[in-house]
Design a protein around this nucleic acid. Structure first.
Lengths: 341, 341
DNA sequence: TTGTATGCGTTATCAC
DNA sequence: GTGATAACGCATACAA
């Protein structure tokens, strides 16, 4: 099972024997223990090279009680936003010398609860968790005894670190962006009725705030419900909106998948974007830049979210006991064709 | 570190003590050893429940020499095809009771070589490897001493299992699809000059075969080189093609990202698709169905590729020593608007 | 059918 | 600065 394929497994004992030192010294060398005589260190390193020694991670994990693996639980990798997030998390983790075990919850509440107590938690030193179905009522389930960083906006105020977007302000900025370009009948696609803490609710709040700030009355007929934030949902919501004959001059997709679905539906009906209807999304996934027309979107600082989450988690794993933090990266409006005046 | 949070770590000894049996019996129960008296099994299970016992994976791994983790090395999750592939691999692995550790190579040759000998290999029981930069010259690097399943078409004939697409036939079918719809000046976007074994080369081969079969002369001016198969590459290649004033009535993007980039470039120049130029892609990523216009593509059987790869790998890990296999799932042409007659 | 004893490869606690 | 030795928690000969 060893890299060089020399045959049987090479252990610290073999290295120690060849170098003429004890296993403890070998351990010290591979762990960069500072107080070692340079000559000893060289001897050991040479022995390691000649034997092609590789540390047995399982043994180390057993002894240290740490695996060097962090968990990342997210809805599904097929959703571009989460694929890009996972990419960033893996990169950030790699820089810090840990690896990432991804678990998909399918945005299913029971599955999200399961992930918190899964046998896999034995395998990871901590968890970065991006729930989509859990609500404030599930806060107790998040009271776990391992390091946890929660992504997103659904649950606040527990004993865990939290990295989130500035959903309200960002949605306000998105809406203002449309208003500044002369739009007044701005539809929202992908709302979640009854939700109070989720991204959908908060983004709707920002939308309403922007309307209010500009003296535009809020028209419930412009808000279209849509459960899962897939492209298909965005398309279906948009068709529903158009069928209802509501006057509309802009659509705010609560995420990019919804907005891309909206573009799709508008294209199918030969409705010009942005001529007749402008469209803005949220997340700034790579697709947004290559849609036709290209999609204006909110960039929520994905890289920073990932890097911060990894950093906070590793600090907890290392035993940090600072007060739990809530980090909110800056966002940007990325203007593209779909809202061009 | 335990799920229930009862406090100190619960071990098999604790369970054994409470159940009034030996650790061996507890071990037998948790490992579903068949010959156990039902009464004993119940006693043990009850003790496990009351104590909230969770097996220590590191200890088991150390003892058994297996971790229950498989590696998945791919270019990057930001590429939708690989995100969807990873999704499928994780699902397939979950069904078989193993978890997946994803490593990104960035399609960089050195990084791809590194992944094969990385320290991470100590952590995984085997590897599913999707190289993009390695070529036939690197076949030796793939002679590793752990179970390996190679995805894609770049390297053949070594001592490993191989799951691949039928690139030649699928590309031929894609080209034929365009020819059947009256196209004769079919451009190819994303070719790799000098390559002989990669997906690009094989798909180009299929393209040429289809032309030949229909008596259409091959025009090198219609083949546009493009390194990384990103949307941006597809857009750039298409612009290059249009700038060259070559007569074109169809574009075959060697993958969907390229084709989506082409759609983007065509849209920017107000060229009607499929009216003036038809477009076909390859991979059938979810985006294809939501582009404007929707993109005709080749579905390579991603689910089957993932499931087969996991299955073959686990068989090797379990010690199977059948001859190495090469599996080639069926493909389908998924017709959408971009090639509508 | 179940119990006992040993070792998997590493790190930590002490001595020296 | 380095060495001997005892855990870490589990699986498995071997014994009963």
């Amino acid at each position: 099972m060893n890299g060089t394929g020399v045959g049987g497994t090479v252990t610290m004992h073999d290295v120690a024997a060849l170098a003429g030192v004890s296993v403890k010294t070998v351990s010290n060398v591979v762990n960069d223990y500072p107080h070692i005589r340079p000559a000893t260190r060289d001897k050991v390193k040479r022995a390691i090279d000649t034997l092609g020694y590789r540390m047995n991670i399982s043994a180390r994990s057993l002894r240290k009680g740490r695996t060097g693996i962090i968990g990342l639980a997210l809805p599904e990798l097929s959703l571009p936003y989460f694929a890009e997030l996972a990419d960033s998390v893996i990169r950030a983790a790699e820089e810090r010398g840990v690896v990432v075990l991804i678990e998909q919850t399918g945005a299913d509440r029971q599955h999200e609860l399961d992930v918190l107590t899964s046998e896999r938690r034995q395998l990871t030193d901590g968890l970065i968790f991006s729930p989509l179905a859990l609500g404030p009522d599930d806060a107790d389930a998040l009271k776990v005894d391992y390091p946890l960083v929660v992504l997103g906006e659904r649950i606040f105020g527990g004993d865990w670190d939290h990295v989130t977007m500035n959903n309200v302000d960002a949605a306000r900025a998105a809406t203002q962006h449309l208003i500044d370009r002369g739009r007044r009948r701005i539809a929202v696609v992908g709302a979640h009725a009854g939700e109070t803490m989720g991204s959908a609710a908060l983004r709707l709040l920002g939308y309403q705030a922007a309307l209010a700030a500009n003296g535009i009355p809020f028209d419930p007929a412009l808000v279209v419900e849509g459960g899962l934030w897939h492209r298909s949902t965005g398309a279906a919501c948009t068709e529903q909106l158009l069928d209802a004959q509501v006057k509309v001059d802009a659509i705010f997709g609560l995420n990019d998948a919804l907005a891309l679905g909206a573009l799709h539906a508008l294209h199918a009906r030969r409705i010009d974007v942005p001529g007749e209807i402008a469209v803005i999304g949220f997340d700034d996934i790579e697709d947004a830049a290559y849609a036709s027309p290209t999609l204006t979107s909110i960039s929520p600082g994905r890289e920073e979210i990932a890097a911060t989450a990894v950093e906070l988690l590793l600090a907890r794993i290392a035993g940090g006991s600072e007060p739990y933090r809530r980090v909110i990266p800056d966002f940007d409006v990325i203007e593209r064709e779909s809202t061009l005046v």
